[in-house]
Design a protein around this nucleic acid. Structure first.
Lengths: 193, 193
DNA sequence: GTCTATAGATTGATAGAC
DNA sequence: GTCTATCAATCTATAGAC
């Protein structure tokens, strides 16, 4: 029980607040209040607000890679792994209904702000995209694996956006089930091949 | 040629800026600069920034209803009308790649801000939802017309989100084509019934 | 109806004591 | 490493002259 460093506390609080309120709406005062430190103490750990964002994105990238690695460890068959991805929407349903997808909403906000960390935020999408692509390759879809990955990514983004706006549980469950239905033909082909 | 009133100019400029930069990022200075009036003059036309947002949403609701009415006038068959909806993504591709979907990004931002006009922004989604639902009813899908409408709405939201993040034209065209493919079975059933 | 001037709050960021 | 005090800029909003 070493306890996390102040820097780690700052990143964790900023991560949470940026997800809930958005980057621009999250002020130093907000983060300072959450971490219980003074605003001035911030600049001992980070030079600018943008630097905090960079650390938050880096932390999310690391966490995402961990999730993807876990899904690979939990299931051998690619179709099961892809289902783990779609079920993220169900596992995080409460937060998604309240705050949307943490990846999609950040990418959208940074795009509108013309923010310099937009590319780094997009890497979060790329992690899922590349991981899904590899699963479809293993299902024998080398030819269109990336298209299929982007299709599923887009579907889940759209579901998160509408689930957030409408706060509709039935819709969310229905769409996840449909994504799994959509996957079935590819799964069969994978087992055949 | 009566010319638009100052108030209309303000709403038009705010609409454009809110789409491009987001609501929170759009300041009175930004709008004043675009309309070429002083900041103080604002408050002769609107009491608060939130009131401008309300007017912008009202203008978008009116414009959306006009678009839907046009689609109905242009095509008699519901499937053709639904295709008009999906082709919005192509017609507005340049803006969507830069700024995302004006409806989805506004709903997402207002949800994160916990803004009072969130419900009004969601009415923009409802306009599309209800209109699509009516088209599916006319295709003989009374039972699941609303589900189908939400499905298509979610798909288009996801496509807009990813097209914005990735700035990928091929992806956008591919997904719109796939939405049209998805529609075909319902269209046939509609013609049969 | 438009302007200038300014209030009052908050923002990101800095300086320096402890 | 944490604090208080403060700066300069920006924001929404108001008051009042013209």
């Amino acid at each position: 029980m070493t306890g996390r460093s102040t820097r780690e506390h700052i990143v964790a609080a900023a991560d949470r607040l940026i997800y809930r309120k958005g980057y621009q709406s999250t002020s130093f005062s907000d983060i300072a209040g959450a971490v219980r430190i003074s605003r001035g103490n911030f600049y001992h750990h980070f030079r600018t607000k943008d630097e905090i964002l960079e650390s938050v994105i880096a932390a999310r990238l690391a966490a995402t890679q961990q999730i993807l690695a876990n899904w690979e460890a939990e299931s051998e068959h690619p179709a099961d792994r892809i289902r783990s991805f779609t079920h993220l929407l169900l596992a995080n349903r409460t937060k998604i209904k309240r705050y949307g997808c943490p990846v999609g909403t950040l990418c959208t906000e940074l795009a509108k702000l013309g923010h310099g960390s937009r590319a780094e935020a997009n890497q979060l999408l790329s992690l899922f995209r590349d991981w899904l692509r590899r699963q479809f390759v293993r299902l024998g879809r080398e030819r269109d694996a990336d298209e299929l990955a982007l299709h599923l990514l887009a579907r889940s983004q759209g579901v998160a956006t509408l689930a957030n706006a409408l706060r509709d549980d039935a819709f969310l469950e229905r769409e996840v089930a449909q994504m799994c239905d959509w996957l079935k033909p590819y799964e069969k082909a994978g087992r055949d091949g």
